[in-house]
């Protein structure tokens, strides 16, 4: 007899606790403005990432198409995945001295883990982390990027 009452009591308390839970869900059901869902991708135009967001490695250029990279290769050494390759070339400058400058700063986005170690390693702050995050693409070859723009020069006054 006792177990029978327990059984009934359990059913009632089960229903009761179920209702307690449903009270919580009902609260959100009837106050939809409290919901937190973001309507991505409809909100793409207004979507702002945090300024420290690590989306990709980029090399900022100024209006004269100049960057700060000296081609020292420290970022290449710091990268754990080998996603940076520095190809440098030697040129003869106005004073007739030989000088090594950057030819191509190759960045393999597909191998990058966005760890920020290259940005930390760079002595002249030539590379920074960009905000773009929609990297999905049909073709893998587009993930290999050359960060210094064609025809770009190194900025004046960057120490080697």
């Amino acid at each position: 007899m006792k177990s029978f009452f327990n059984y009934i009591a359990e059913i009632f308390s089960g229903v009761w606790t179920l209702l307690t839970g449903m009270k919580v869900t009902a609260k959100y059901f009837f106050t939809p403005w409290k919901n937190v869902t973001q309507q991505y991708p409809e909100n793409r135009d207004t979507l702002v990432m945090y300024d420290r967001f690590r989306g990709e490695v980029i090399m900022p250029h100024n209006e004269n198409n100049e960057h700060k990279c000296t081609g020292c290769g420290l970022c290449e050494n710091a990268c754990p995945n080998g996603s940076i390759e520095i190809i440098s070339k030697s040129i003869v400058n106005e004073e007739g001295k030989k000088k090594r400058i950057i030819d191509q700063h190759i960045y393999h986005l597909g191998m990058c883990t966005f760890c920020n170690l290259c940005v930390r390693a760079c002595p002249s702050d030539a590379i920074v982390m960009g905000q773009k995050f929609e990297h999905a693409h049909w073709d893998r070859s587009t993930f290999t990027k050359v960060l210094n723009q064609p025809g770009s020069k190194i900025m004046e006054g960057i120490k080697e």
Binding site: M49, Y50, R52, R54, F114, N116, R120
Partner: peptide, 22 residues
């Protein structure tokens, strides 16, 4: 979001570095 604001990543933080934080 708090993580992202401070260190730029959400899951794979890589925030501690030997000697301090990034």
């Amino acid at each position: 979001d708090i993580f992202e604001e401070t260190c730029g990543a959400r899951l794979t933080l890589n925030y501690s570095v030997p000697g301090g934080v990034m």
